[in-house]
Each structure stands twice: as structure tokens, then as C-alpha cells.
Design a protein around this nucleic acid. Structure first.
Length: 737
DNA sequence: ATCCTCGCTTGTAGT
DNA sequence: AAGCGAGGAT
């Protein structure tokens, strides 16, 4: 028996828990669902429970599997447990993706992958889908790669793969529609290409695991025996594939403990199924549910406002958050003229806070859409206040970083054809599309990688002389770098590769204004590499952890999207852009109707509950969108906030009903009767999304609204838009979804 | 092969 | 407004 001294946490730490929290930490009678509302000490309960498992349940760290939603959350959890538990490293802690990858690395052959398979990111995925669509002779306009990729990803979220499901007879459970044939074909071709490339995408990390478990009972049994305790955080954000994965993982009798808050489910668009948490008691026999409802974060006004808002949602498990902290300030709702005034007043308020000594790292501006950040940034620069933007373009998503990584991937694994393709002509070497096509043909016909194909082609005269010479030199370079990789540490190797390949020089010669910044980023990449002892380890790291730890630059205002704010808290929170169309977001309503609206409302709930002391909401009467002026109504969420917890400033007197806001409110849903009359049996809820034809008669155009197709000829259509009395010829706008 | 310009489209969230 | 692809010019 191993020595049971992993926990040095004093028993008395349980004293800091309230009875409910204690129950959530202590219960080991079977499956457990902890319904933890916002700010109820969820993280504390989770970490204490893990320590408690080791201490009282005599479990070893490696018998615990803890799955979090983000890598950040996993790291935070590890850090919190570290002081109390030794052997934390043996614990299986991470995201579904990172744990799936860890398992796949061990058993890749069993699911037809060779060792050293690469993990594709969103960018790689899209390029692959583009290639496939091009190769099958489809018009990219009518068959947008993005649409296909989105469908593929959503199918994977539901664990639907062409291997196990007949996609042609599969109906989308939400819309009850078949998947378009071209998407099915693309999906099938995409999986084949992945197989050839020896790559997996994010969805595959789980899907392959599921296949593995289903096909190799002995492997599954090993994991079933290993894991005695399974904890899943943010359970409301799990998708079907993750649910199936959990079922398999826990079927050996592991203690399952899921933690989540149905009111904070905001990732439906990415395949998350709130149903998973709503169904927990049925899915896991004899499950116990513990509700954490005492909020320690916010004042009663903030909590009251948030609770009032979320109570408008149906289909909740129902929680009643309460706090002992009474009073505080009411939520401000401020009307501004336009986005400029919004930025000025918000930053003005921040400036006053700053001057009064309020810590800036306790302030945040939480926006609905990332493009809203720009105006605030500009204003903050003018006022000289320090800020940081979280999200947006991440470090490892930048072009120069992805190029550099492609070089490193190629050196690490010459058969990484995606990497090869990315950098073979970056910087320009005179190996363009035609040469690449020849290589592709050879690679495809012989079933080899681009590198091997290139290797053959330099011996023949199929390529032009110049291309052949250059290619020969390049292949030799790669081999040389590979040899150097044996002796040099990764950081030095990267420097050598970037310099010798001419990539550094390429950016030095570039005269565009952002070139210096890109060179800086490359330097940072090399610095980031210094922490790793092997190139492989680093590449593994970046394939999943797409973030780089930021330097601490002192107190800063945080600007981020509402989505990325989940799980965080700030003293004062600014919530701009609460207008119909913006928030709730127009597309969310169009694409998902009532469900979409409820998800938006949960997002609003998340936003308000981030605030500890103060929340300030603004809405603009006018906004420049899509290069035209729009007059928006205040968000319906504002009127759903209980009057007793809010103060309105400059409240609009002229409160127009939705019906009159045909264009600006864009709330077509509000007038179904009228529309049905005007357009016969047209079903708005089903047909709102994008532009598409319905029986060649009617289309919905994002910009122009409803229109009648008066003539249809090939890709062109004459559409008459009633509302504007304008006749417009649209080309290839009939997007099939 | 590469550069450059024009015109068209798109514009929620992000492991 | 900005990014992308197509197509023409070099």
C-alpha cells in the first residue's frame, strides 16, 4: 500500500464551508450533481472536494479524473490543490481535449492513427475543407467552406461520424432536416483526408476516444479500473460527445460528480446541450443534487437584478440565489446617443474611479461581440488608462506565429503535409500553385506525404528547373534542421530555422507598418520555447493551449467578451451595447429562435453576476453598423430587470413598440401575423437564417428583408423587395444550408 | 511566379 | 471597414 500522506490540508478547512458546501464536499453515496449558482464558491468546493477525496476516500491522485472547460481553469485548480496535496502531477486534470489527446497518444494505432499524428486547429480545418470543396468542383460561393466546417463540427459535437451514421438519412434533431448532400460529401472526404494526413481535429480527440473505448473493451476497462473519482466542471457546457465519453469512462463504477449552473449555459452554438445537466438525475441512477445558493460575490441589488432577469427563462432547474450582504448600489442603466458617447462616458467613469483610488484590475468592460472592443480601446488610449484585451486575435493565431510553427512542425515531423503546404512558398521561393499541384497529385496517387512526393519529384523533370532546384535546396534545409534538432535546444533551433529559411529576413524586408510588431512576436515565440526541453513537447502544448502567459503589467482595465468572462469577477463591471439586435444578438434570434433568446438572456445574466459591487449598463440610441446608421431599441433585457434594483439615467421617453421597428429593431418575430398575411405560408422561425430560397418564391435577405423571387436563372435571381420597393439582381446568393 | 487592383462579401461567441 | 478572391499586368 502506498503511504497515505498526500493530504496535509488541516481538517479545520472544512469549517470555512457553509452547510451546503460541506454537503457537496462530503457526499460519497453515489453520483452527485452540484448545482452551483454564480458566486457561490464553486471553485472552493471543487478543490476542497478533491483534497477530501484523497483524504477520506483513500484515493490516490492518479485515480482522480478532473475535467474542466478551459486550460486556465485546470491550471487554477491545480495551483489551488498544490499546497494541500502531494503528487498532484499524477492527477488527471485538464480539458476534455487535453485528456482525450493524452489517451489517444497511448492508443493511436487502435483507431488507425500513426504515432506522431498532428492536431489540426481551426485554421487548418478550414483550409482542408476549402481544398476539398475546390477539388470536388463545387462553387465556393454557393457552398461556403465555413458553412460546411461548421456543420461538420456540430455533427462531431453530437458524436455523429460518417463511420457510424448514415449521414444521408440523418436528420438534425433541432431542425428535423436532412444534412445537405454536399455537406455530407465534404464531411466524408474530410475524414478521409484527415486519415491520409495522419491528423485529428478537436472533435476527433473525443470521437476517436469513444470509438477506441467501444472497440477495445480491454483498454476501456483499464481506464474504468484506474479512475475511482470523476469530476466534471461546467457540466452545462458539455456536448453529446463529451457526455458519451463520460458515460463510458464512468461505467466501471467511478464516482461521478458534475458541477454546473444551467443558468450559465452559453455555448449552445458550439454544440453544448443544456439537456445534459437537466437530465442528470435520470442519466445517473440514484443521483443526489446539492444546490449552492448562497452568493458571496455580489450585493443584493446586483443579485436581485440578475435573478429577476433570469427568471424570464423557462426550462430551468430553478435556484434562488441569496446573499447576506444587503444594500450596495443599484444597477445603473444609462442611455447614450451613440457608440462614441458610450465609450466616452464609460471611460470617463473609469477615469473617475481611477482618480478616486479604485483598483483598475477590479474593473472590466464586457462586450457582446469582439468588434465592440475597438472603440473603447481608442478612448482608453486617449485618456491614458492602462487596459488589456482578452481574446480577440490570440498569440498563436497570428499569421507569423502560425508560419513559424509550421516550420517547427515540419522539422519535427516531415510528413506533416499541412505544415509543408503552409510554408513551402513562404517566404516566396518560386514554388507556386502549379508546382504544388504536381506535388499534390503525386502525393495523392501514391498515398504519401507532400514531403515524400517532393523528394521524388526532384529526381524527375516534371517540375520546372527552377522550382526543382529550389525544392531540392529546401528539402536539404529541412533535413539539416532535423539533424540540428538532435543537438540544439528548441529555442535555439527555432532561431536557426527562422533565420536560415529566410523567414526572419522576409519580415525585415517587409515595409508594411505591422512588420516590426510581427518580428517582435517571433522573438516572443522563441522566448516561449525556452521553457520547453523538447520541440515535441512544445508543439503538443501549443496545439491545445492557444494562449501565452501574459506579463503582469500592473493594474489594468480588462476588456473582454461576455463569453470569456464566465467564471471571473470584478468590483465594477461595465456592460455596453444593450440594444435589440446587438444584445440579444440578431443572428442568435434568427438561427435559434426562443432557445437563442434564452441563451442570450443567460449571457446577460452571466454579465451582471460578474460584478461584486457595481454594474453599469449602457445602450445607444444610434449605432453605425455595417456602414449605415441604425436606430436600435433598448434591449428587452433592460425592461426585464426589476425596477427596484436599477436606476435609469436619461431614459428614453419615446418607447416604440417592436412592431414599428421593422428595420432597426429587426424584430421580425414580433409581427408574425402581418408577415404571414403578406407572404402566404412562409414560416419565419424556420426560414429566418441567412438567405435561401423557398420554393423559388421567397427569400429572406439579411440586409433587405423579405423579397419575392420574380425570375430565377442559374446563379442569378431577380428579387423584388416589398419593403423598399426596390428591385435588385442578386448573384449566387442562394446559399444552401 | 508575383504583384496589384478591383469588386464583392461579410460582419456572435471560442475549447 | 476590411478581408478575400479573381484577373490583369509585369
Amino acid at each position: 500500500m502506498p503511504i497515505m500522506n498526500h493530504v496535509i490540508m488541516p481538517d479545520s478547512s472544512l469549517d470555512f464551508l457553509n452547510p451546503k458546501q460541506r454537503e457537496a464536499v462530503d457526499y460519497f453515496g453515489g453520483p452527485l450533481l452540484i448545482l452551483a449558482g454564480a458566486g457561490t464558491g464553486k471553485t472552493k468546493v471543487l478543490t476542497t472536494r478533491i483534497a477530501h477525496i484523497i483524504q477520506t476516500q483513500r484515493a490516490l491522485p492518479h485515480e482522480i479524473l478532473a475535467v474542466t472547460f478551459t486550460n486556465k481553469a485546470a491550471n487554477e485548480m491545480r495551483e489551488r490543490i498544490l499546497p494541500f496535496v502531494s503528487g498532484t502531477n499524477a492527477m488527471w486534470m485538464g480539458t476534455f481535449h487535453s485528456i482525450g489527446l493524452r489517451i489517444l497518444r497511448r492508443h493511436c494505432e487502435a483507431v488507425g492513427l500513426r504515432s506522431n499524428f498532428t492536431v489540426l486547429d481551426a485554421d487548418d480545418q478550414l483550409r482542408l475543407v476549402k481544398q476539398i470543396i475546390k477539388a470536388s468542383g463545387l462553387d465556393e460561393k454557393r457552398h461556403p467552406p465555413k458553412v460546411a466546417l461548421n456543420s461538420i463540427n456540430l455533427l462531431k459535437d453530437r458524436a455523429i461520424s460518417p463511420l457510424t451514421t448514415d449521414l444521408r438519412s440523418y436528420r438534425d434533431p433541432k431542425t428535423n432536416r436532412f444534412i445537405s448532400a454536399w455537406i455530407v460529401d465534404t464531411y466524408i472526404a474530410y475524414q478521409q483526408r484527415l486519415q491520409i494526413l495522419n491528423g485529428v481535429d478537436f472533435g476527433d480527440l473525443l470521437l476517436h476516444c469513444i470509438t477506441l473505448f467501444q472497440q477495445c473493451g480491454d483498454i476501456l476497462e483499464r481506464y474504468n479500473q484506474q479512475f475511482k473519482f470523476i469530476l466534471i466542471d461546467e457540466y452545462q457546457d458539455t456536448n453529446v460527445a463529451q457526455y458519451l465519453w463520460l458515460r463510458l469512462m464512468s461505467q466501471g463504477g467511478a464516482q461521478v460528480c458534475c458541477v454546473g449552473d444551467d443558468d450559465q449555459s452559453i455555448y449552445g452554438w458550439r454544440g453544448a446541450e443544456v439537456d445534459n445537466i437537466l437530465r442528470f438525475e435520470q442519466d445517473f441512477q440514484g443521483a443526489k443534487v446539492v444546490r449552492l445558493e448562497q452568493n458571496y460575490r455580489s450585493t443584493s441589488h446586483i443579485l436581485g437584478a440578475a435573478s429577476g432577469l433570469i427568471s424570464h427563462n423557462k426550462g430551468r432547474l430553478g435556484k434562488e440565489l441569496w446573499t447576506e450582504v444587503d444594500g450596495g448600489e443599484k444597477v445603473d442603466i444609462r442611455c447614450v446617443y451613440d457608440s462614441e458617447e458610450e465609450a466616452i462616458t464609460t471611460v470617463g467613469a473609469l477615469e473617475r474611479l481611477y482618480k478616486s483610488g479604485y483598483p483598475l484590475n477590479e474593473t472590466a468592460i464586457l462586450v457582446r461581440a469582439s468588434h465592440q472592443t475597438r472603440e473603447f480601446e481608442e478612448r482608453l488610449i486617449v485618456c491614458g488608462l492602462p487596459y488589456r484585451v482578452i481574446g480577440g486575435m490570440r498569440f498563436y493565431e497570428r499569421q507569423e506565429i502560425r508560419d513559424a510553427l509550421a516550420y517547427l512542425r515540419l522539422v519535427n515531423q516531415v510528413n506533416d503535409s499541412l505544415a509543408f503546404e503552409r510554408i513551402i512558398n513562404t517566404p516566396r521561393r518560386g514554388i507556386g500553385e502549379s508546382s504544388l499541384n504536381i506535388m499534390h497529385n503525386v502525393a495523392r496517387s501514391q498515398g504519401v506525404s507532400l514531403f515524400d512526393a517532393a523528394n521524388q519529384l526532384i529526381e524527375t523533370d516534371e517540375l520546372r528547373t527552377q522550382a526543382r532546384t529550389v525544392l531540392r535546396g529546401f528539402l536539404e534545409d529541412v533535413r539539416r534542421w532535423q539533424r540540428k534538432a538532435q543537438e540544439l535546444p528548441p529555442a535555439e533551433l527555432a532561431q536557426v530555422v527562422l533565420d536560415e529559411s529566410g523567414y526572419t529576413a522576409f519580415w525585415k524586408n517587409e515595409t508594411t507598418p505591422d512588420a516590426p510588431a510581427r518580428l517582435e512576436n517571433l522573438k516572443e515565440l522563441v522566448v516561449a520555447l525556452e521553457e520547453f526541453s523538447t520541440l515535441e513537447g512544445f508543439l503538443e502544448h501549443v496545439s491545445l493551449v492557444m494562449e501565452v502567459t501574459q506579463k503582469d503589467l500592473g493594474p489594468q482595465i480588462t476588456i473582454m467578451t461576455l463569453h470569456s468572462a464566465k467564471g471571473l469577477e470584478f468590483g465594477t463591471v461595465f456592460l455596453p451595447g444593450w440594444e435589440e439586435g446587438m444584445f440579444p444578438n440578431q443572428r442568435a434570434l434568427e438561427e435559434s429562435g426562443t432557445d437563442g433568446l434564452e441563451e442570450e438572456r443567460r449571457l446577460a445574466y452571466v454579465g451582471i453576476t460578474r460584478a461584486k459591487e457595481k454594474a453599469v449598463i449602457t445602450y445607444a440610441t444610434m449605432r453605425r453598423m455595417y456602414n449605415q446608421i441604425q436606430h436600435n431599441l433598448p434591449s428587452r433585457f433592460l425592461s426585464e430587470l426589476p425596477e427596484s434594483h436599477v436606476i435609469w439615467h436619461n431614459r428614453l421617453q419615446r418607447h416604440q413598440p417592436f412592431q414599428t421597428m421593422r428595420r432597426s429593431g429587426n424584430s421580425y418575430k414580433e409581427k408574425p401575423n402581418q408577415s404571414s398575411q403578406a407572404f402566404g405560408d412562409f414560416d419565419f422561425n424556420q426560414e429566418m437564417s441567412g438567405m435561401r430560397h423557398t420554393g423559388m418564391k421567397l427569400v429572406y435577405h439579411k440586409k433587405f428583408g423579405m423579397g419575392k423571387v420574380v425570375r430565377l436563372e442559374g446563379d442569378k435571381a431577380d428579387v423584388h423587395f416589398e419593403e423598399f420597393g426596390l428591385k435588385k439582381v442578386l448573384n449566387s446568393f442562394l446559399t444552401e444550408v
